[in-house]
């Protein structure tokens, strides 16, 4: 991935007309992605966007990079094939809560555990948009939709917990209405070496408007949203007056004025605070009266699958020499007929 002269967001805009509903949160994610891409120092031809099916999956059409719009739920496997075939390419997966967690859930968890160097952005709008409004695997229990007129009976997935549990090496959450935070998170994810996962809370103003209103509305968000920052205490609240602390069993809220309460100050550690802490943070939700965290839950580096595969090939060549068909055919028992 060679450096090129600095590109702009216009360079990454394709000639295709964007076709999401006016006001859809997807526009914001696309805009931030176009801001992030030129900063990565990767030329356009070396970037591939892969998607499945759903509103979010139209994303690749709008970017002037290579792109493939696959089938429902299967973007992670196409992306895996691309990256393993060509480790020199930068590969993104764009998916949604239905595409990535329902029909394609199996592929996503296996991509996480393999740690192939792919960046996954999951647009979570807690609804099926393209099929016009059925409950999704992240919809809240009891949700009334066209397919659940008496209320959904299903417990929702927590995508961040799923990624953490499956071994993703970079796990983050952001939100469509906070462009700065979103751009910074996408940038970090794109630069991560290994499987990076970003859940983006995305408003579907047609079928699930206001799903994240508590986290985006100027009046409410300060008390419901926790922006995690590395090596900083977990501070939130209207006037930053609250702070999270850990009692050994659960989180509780204390005053952010640490000198007042004498508690040891709990600080966020992105680089491996351990599965227990990461998982507990991911479980927090304003619905349960604790703030919903956004930011980076985990960012660790281990060998990637693609690197290890390349090494195996190099090793095999060193051991056995470059593949020689004649040797291959005559290896083993042969005989001559005259």
């Amino acid at each position: 991935m060679e450096k090129t002269t600095k590109l702009t967001k216009e360079d990454f805009t394709s000639d295709q007309e964007t076709r999401w509903c006016p006001g859809c949160g997807d526009y914001s994610i696309l805009a931030q992605m176009k801001k992030v891409l030129p900063n990565l120092g990767i030329s356009r031809e070396n970037i591939v966007f892969v998607s499945g099916i759903g509103c979010s999956s139209r994303f690749p059409y709008y970017l002037e990079t290579y792109g493939i719009h696959g089938i429902h739920g299967r973007a992670p496997v196409i992306a895996s094939g691309i990256k393993l075939s060509r480790p020199d390419l930068k590969v993104f997966v764009i998916t949604g809560d239905g595409d990535g967690l329902s029909i394609g859930g199996n592929h996503l968890i296996h991509l996480f555990r393999r740690n192939i160097d792919i960046t996954i952005i999951l647009f979570n709008n807690q609804i099926y948009g393209l099929t016009k409004g059925q409950y999704s695997p992240t919809s809240e229990k009891g949700k009334i939709t066209k397919s659940s007129p008496y209320g959904s009976l299903e417990n929702p997935f927590n995508p961040v917990q799923m990624a953490l549990a499956s071994g993703a090496t970079f796990v983050a959450r952001s939100i469509d209405r906070d462009p700065k935070h979103l751009a910074a998170t996408l940038d970090r994810a794109a630069r991560h070496k290994g499987t990076a996962f970003v859940e983006v809370y995305q408003n579907c103003n047609i079928f699930n408007d206001g799903a994240f209103i508590a986290l985006t509305d100027a009046k409410q968000k300060k008390s419901h949203l926790l922006k995690m920052e590395h090596d900083k205490p977990f501070i939130f609240g209207e006037n930053n007056e609250n702070m999270l602390t850990w009692t050994g069993q659960k989180f509780s809220v204390i005053s952010s004025d640490a000198s007042e309460n004498g508690h040891e100050i709990l600080k966020h550690n992105e680089n491996g605070s351990g599965p227990a802490m990461e998982f507990m943070l991911a479980s927090l939700s304003h619905v349960d009266h604790l703030p919903t965290p956004i930011g980076i839950f985990r960012s660790i580096e281990i060998d990637t699958y693609d690197e290890m595969l390349t090494k195996q090939i190099e090793h095999a060549k060193k051991e056995k020499g470059d593949g020689d068909l004649k040797k291959l055919f005559t290896g083993g028992y042969t005989w001559m007929n005259n």
């Binding site: 493939i68 696959g70 992306a79």
Partner: peptide
């Protein structure tokens, strides 16, 4: 499904 999907991805990338 993943087997064929990865193969198709590899084809797309030139294998």
């Amino acid at each position: 499904i993943a087997g064929v999907g990865a193969a198709l991805g590899a084809v797309y990338a030139g294998s």
